[in-house]
Every structure is written in C-alpha cells, then in structure tokens.
C-alpha cells in the first residue's frame, strides 16, 4: 500500500518536473526569438544610419570636388604659368581651400538645368547694360537741371523670388541701375530708395523681377524639387 503511494508520488513529481522543463524551454525559446528580433532590428537601424552617413559623405565629397574644380579654374585664370610645378602648387592650394570651405559655395542650391541658367544669365547681361545706360542718362538729365526736380522716396514691394541667389541678383541689379538703391531685404520684402517718380514707376512695373525669375527658372516651374546638395548639378552636367 505504502509502496504504491510512494510510486505514485514519484511519478507525479516526475510529471511536474517534465512540465516545468517544457515550460522553461518555451520561455527560453521565446527569449531567444525576441533577442534575435531585437538584434535584427538594431542591425537594420545601424545599416540605415551607415547608409545615411554614406549619403551625406557622398554629398560632401561632391561639394568638395565641385568647389575644388571651380577654384582650380580660377587659379589657372590668375596664374598664367602652366608648368607642372605651378600646377601642382595650385592643386594643393585648391584642395586645402576646398577642404576648408566645401559647404559655402554650394549651400542652398536649387537647380533645374545649369546650362540653361548660364545661357539665360548671359542673355540677361546686355539687357541690364542697356537699362543702366538709359537710366544713367535720365538721372544725369534730372540732376543737371537748374531746378533739380527730384522726388526721393522709399518704395516697398513683395517679391516672388524664392532662393537667395536670385534675390541678391535682383538686389544687385537694382543697385547697379543709377537712381535706385536696395536698402534691405527683410522676409521677402524689398525696401528700395528711388530718386524720382519715373525710376520708381519703372521698378514697380516689375520687368526686371520677371526677367530674373526667368533666369533662375522660378517663373515657368521647371525646377524639379527642393534640392539641398549639388548632386543635381552633376546630373545636369553629365547629360
């Protein structure tokens, strides 16, 4: 009697231990599974970070190469000596300068097609020179008269230009034409000092702004998207 009880008890104990072992195995399995998922997630994240870093490094490298090439062209323009010694010196200087200032020349670049922009800018310069000569004659005739019929005023207008390069192109064009001076650009509003009414009317007609917007392709919506790196330039140059 007692022997059978003892046997049953031991059997029960073994069964319980078996169950506990199975449970523990299950827990261990899920734990291993979780940690595996976790590590895979971490791995993916690390790869993503690496990839983004590589992307940023690639952009920086492209900026570096572009800056160095432009500066080397400027160096050859200045130097005039084309023997290997001076060319090597120029290359070293350009690399040092591009390493120091690689993020200055290509900040805030929004480019559609670089060649079209350059061509339109070249076509804009003769028109600007013609405007300068015309308004120069006008201002001289106004100032040299005995009564001097000037009417100085400050006019403000809101611009539709978006990038800083086009804004300063417009501002410098306004300053280059005699009689008008750009005083400030604040939040897209131009404050321009004009000498008399005719010059101010010419400016308010907005032909110059339309032409500048046409140069940088801000009027005809040809630009692709917001680009903060120089990658598009290389694409445009390669085609």
């Amino acid at each position: 009697m007692e022997v059978t009880l003892l046997l049953e008890a031991t059997e029960n104990a073994f069964r319980i231990m078996e169950k506990a072992r199975a449970h523990a195995l299950g827990v261990l399995d899920t734990a291993v599974q979780f940690t595996g998922e976790q590590t895979r997630f971490m791995e993916e994240k690390r790869w993503q970070v690496l990839f983004a870093g590589a992307q940023r490094r690639k952009t920086r490298f492209q900026n570096f190469v572009g800056t160095a090439l432009i500066l080397f062209a400027f160096w050859m323009l200045l130097s005039g000596h084309f023997d290997p010694f001076h060319l090597t010196l120029g290359a070293i200087c350009c690399i040092i300068t591009a390493y120091l200032f690689h993020d200055l020349l290509f900040a805030n670049v929004r480019v559609g097609d670089m060649r079209v922009v350059a061509l339109r800018f070249l076509c804009y310069i003769p028109w600007l020179i013609q405007q300068i000569v015309l308004s120069n004659l006008h201002v001289a005739s106004v100032v040299l008269r005995r009564k001097m019929p000037i009417n100085p005023q400050i006019i403000t207008f809101k611009t539709k230009l978006e990038t800083d390069i086009s804004s300063i192109t417009l501002a410098n064009s306004i300053t280059l034409t005699p009689g008008t001076i750009t005083m400030d650009i604040r939040d897209g509003v131009y404050y321009v000092h004009a000498l008399d009414q005719k010059v101010a009317d010419d400016l308010n007609a907005g032909e110059m702004e339309d032409r500048v917007a046409h140069i940088f392709m801000e009027a005809d919506h040809l630009y692709v998207e917001d680009v903060l790196d120089a990658a598009r330039i290389y694409d445009a140059l390669r085609v």
Binding site: T67, L71, F74, W75, L78, S79, H81, H86, L89, G90, C93, C94, I96, T97, A98, L100, F101, L104, L105, A107, D164, I165, S167, I168, A171, N172, T182, D184, I185
Partner: peptide, 26 residues
C-alpha cells in the same frame, strides 16, 4: 541676418582665400 551680405560673402570667401594663396605662391 542680412541676406545680401551673407550670400555675397559666402560666394566671395573661397575665391578670396585662393587669391591670397596665389599671392603667396607667386
């Protein structure tokens, strides 16, 4: 905070430094 001065000096500084290096080397 001025757009004109900031952009113009951004474009001007690398050329100024390369000009200075040209003056040194030549």
């Amino acid at each position: 905070q001025d757009v004109i001065v900031k952009t113009l000096s951004r474009l001007l500084v690398p050329f100024m430094v390369i000009y200075a290096l040209y003056v040194i080397m030549h």
